[in-house]
Amino acid sequence: MTTSAARPVRIGLQLQPQHADYAKIRATASEAEDLGVDIIFNWDHFYPLYGDPDGLHYECWTMLGAWAESTSRVEIGALVTCNSYRNPELLADMARTVDNISGGRLILGIGSGWFQKDYDEYGYEFGTAGGRLDDLADALPRIESRLDKLNPQPQRKIPVLIGGGGEKKTLKLVAKHADIWHGFADPEVAERKIGILRAHCADVGRDPAEIELSVGVQGEPDEVGPKLRELGVSTFTVGTGGPDYDLSALSKWIAWRDAQNS
């Protein structure tokens, strides 16, 4: 049986769709693909998360459709889709469509949502964190069911990535539904979250080795990478925002990946 530690290292880039025009975003996606990145993510917000709060910004899923055409090798996805913004059946159909356009390269990243400005400005009910997680728990089986019904089918079983570290609800949903767990954590926090995830897997009768472990990283690969690798993390994602999209950190992580996988 494959274990998490046996998975090869993969490197992701969160190409944040803010403070730049789309031509720059597209060019950066192409540059990252040429550098050898494994996955390119955007995010699902309607406004910038830092810098000018009313600065340039683009919608997530229409951009993923464009990336499906403008890239050829990398996997693509949102880190992460906000469950609140789209009917689950519609989201499943969108994911299937982008997966087909890309030739089977979509990762369906999803979370419960948290950025209140998006909700307020676009007319969604913000509610409570617990309520949004309950909505996600309701949506995931509906997404899975709709994906099974669509014609044509996706090019592959679309990997579901669930982002978040909530110990009682989010990680339980990961154990039930996810192919990939993504967290934003230093090694000490990641160790705790992974331990709790494994306990939830035991509760639902799932082998935790089936779930790929993914972490957003900062800092030097040689310092951060080995500690997370020991925990079974195999996907390491760096983020960059506009207008400049500095890929120097990404290059370091790609070089580290190549050394680890050689």
Rank of each mutant, 00 (worst) to 15 (best):
M1L: 10
T2W: 10
S4T: 15
R7N: 08
G12Q: 03
L13K: 04
L13E: 05
L15E: 06
L15T: 03
A20H: 07
S30A: 15
S30N: 13
D34W: 05
D38G: 09
I39H: 10
I39S: 04
N42R: 12
F46N: 07
L49W: 10
P53I: 08
D54E: 11
G55W: 07
H57L: 09
Y58S: 11
C60V: 04
M63C: 08
M63P: 00
A66N: 08
A68S: 15
E69I: 13
T71C: 01
R73W: 09
V80A: 10
P88Q: 02
M94D: 00
M94G: 02
R96T: 14
R96S: 15
N100H: 11
I101D: 04
G103F: 06
L106D: 01
G109Y: 00
I110T: 06
G111P: 04
G111E: 08
Q116P: 01
E125V: 11
G131C: 03
L133Q: 14
D135A: 13
A137R: 15
L140F: 03
P141D: 09
D148S: 11
K149P: 00
K149M: 11
Q153K: 15
Q155I: 08
K157E: 12
K157D: 14
V160L: 14
G166I: 06
K169E: 01
K169G: 00
K169C: 02
T170L: 03
T170P: 00
L171V: 04
K172Q: 11
H177I: 04
I180C: 02
H182M: 12
P187W: 02
P187R: 04
E188I: 13
E191T: 09
R192F: 05
R192T: 09
I194Q: 00
L197W: 00
R198L: 02
C201Y: 02
A202N: 15
A209P: 03
E210R: 15
E212G: 07
G219S: 09
E220R: 14
E220Q: 13
G225R: 01
P226E: 03
V233A: 07
S234Q: 06
T235I: 11
T237N: 15
V238F: 04
V238L: 10
T240C: 10
D244W: 07
A255R: 14
R257Q: 12
R257K: 14
D258C: 07
A259H: 10
S262Y: 06
